[in-house]
């Protein structure tokens, strides 16, 4: 069996695991981790295809594409992580505000 296909299948498996995690996980950080796994899977498929095109010739175009992809992926991850922190913060603040109100006005549910 061709060893290149190992990496193709490995990439596919990473992709599937990432997709599953992205949909199933509840915690946003884990969702973002899962999305990163997915992109890694895609990169693996791209690079293993680059070697598959010839016996000795390596195709540098997918390499360049993956380099671009890595940078794009770290950019989106950074924005996503800051957003997660902010969402959590504002939620906390809202809860805190509720609590203060409750202490002030006595317990009212709803």
């Amino acid at each position: 069996m061709n060893t290149l296909l190992f990496y193709d299948f490995s990439g596919l498996a990473l992709l599937a695991i990432g997709l599953h995690g992205l949909i199933r996980s509840s915690h946003p950080l884990r969702k973002i981790l899962a999305a990163n796994l997915m992109t890694s899977g895609v990169f693996l498929i791209m690079i293993s295809g680059a070697r598959g095109t010839g016996q000795t010739m390596i195709d540098p175009v997918p390499h360049a594409m993956v380099l671009t992809g890595i940078v794009v992926s770290v950019s989106t991850t950074a924005v996503a992580l800051v957003l997660v922190c902010l969402v959590q913060e504002t939620t906390n603040r809202a809860l805190l505000w509720q609590k203060r109100k409750r202490e002030k006005w006595g317990r009212t549910d709803g």
Binding site: L29, L33, R51, I58, H63, V66, I70, A78
Partner: peptide
């Protein structure tokens, strides 16, 4: 897979920096 450029970028950005970003977000 004979992609040393990608390997360098992955180690530095993909693993190192992204990992650091995740850890700092977790700490926050």
């Amino acid at each position: 897979l004979q992609a040393p450029d990608v390997a360098l970028a992955e180690a530095a950005i993909g693993a190192g920096l992204t990992g650091a970003l995740f850890l700092s977000a977790l700490r926050r």
